[in-house]
């Protein structure tokens, strides 16, 4: 990684950071959506004991829809406001992808931690294997952010961009959800590490690496379309 690459990626990240900190619209919307989703799902459980598998599934549904609705903004907003062309003229595609993906990763982690704390609180669930829970969450956020960033870019120039971005991101992330649920249910006390927990963790990390490795190249090919 040479310094030019670092500078360019940080320039994009800093731009995203400044815009978000000054308007707070994206973060606030993401937080609100996440909290409402968690509340709605928890309310549906009606204070009954929920098995760990169901808790993990519900949590991942909340994370998935929260990510699909909020993280795709980073590209959609550029096209909507007409600033995408400025980036196309001055920035290299990999720098744009990584800068935005890093910001999305940050946003996803912050939102996920909040959602998780609320959800575990509402459902009175204990984490039995914290490291596995943490790996599932962090690796899941990396994959979510990478895939959703790419889907935002694919949908950004369509007329129905907001709906399309979410519609194409959710199916692509279903395998990730399957892995995430497998890992998280073991961390919440159901099943065993050797029975699939550690495999799910490895799968999540591999999914994240693959998504973030291929995403920039796919993005670079369509950035100027």
């Amino acid at each position: 990684m040479n310094s030019s690459w670092r500078v360019e990626i940080l320039a994009i990240f800093r731009k995203e950071w400044r815009i978000e900190m000054r308007s707070l619209s994206g973060l606030v919307t993401a937080f609100l959506f996440s909290v409402v989703t968690v509340y709605a799902i928890s309310f549906a459980a009606l204070n009954t004991h929920i098995p760990p598998t169901v808790v993990s599934g519900m949590l991942w549904v909340a994370l998935l829809f929260s990510a699909a609705s909020s993280l795709t903004r980073t590209f959609l907003i550029e096209e909507e406001l007409g600033t995408a062309d400025l980036l196309r003229l001055v920035a290299r595609p990999h720098a744009v992808f990584w800068g935005k993906a890093l910001f999305n990763i940050f946003q996803c982690i912050v939102t996920s931690v909040l959602v998780t704390i609320l959800f575990l609180g509402f459902t009175s669930t204990q984490v039995i294997i914290p490291w596995l829970f943490g790996v599932s969450l962090i690796a899941g956020c990396l994959s979510l952010a990478g895939a959703v960033t790419l889907c935002g870019a694919i949908a950004s120039q369509a007329s129905n961009r907001s709906m399309l971005a979410a519609a194409i991101a959710v199916p692509l992330l279903l395998p990730l959800v399957a892995l995430g649920v497998s890992g998280m249910r073991v961390s919440l006390g159901e099943g065993s590490l050797s029975g699939g927990g550690s495999g799910a963790a490895i799968g999540l990390i591999g999914y994240a690496v693959a998504t973030l490795a291929t995403g920039p190249y796919i993005f670079a090919a369509v950035w100027k379309s």
Binding site: K15, S23, V90
Partner: peptide, 26 residues
């Protein structure tokens, strides 16, 4: 290129715009 339909970032200052484009261009 400077175009009519090109927009600038509402939440960045004039100086930040120039700083950003310089960093991105190298």
């Amino acid at each position: 290129l400077s175009a009519l339909e090109q927009s600038v970032y509402a939440q960045l200052t004039v100086e930040e715009h120039l700083e950003m484009t310089a960093e991105l261009r190298g």
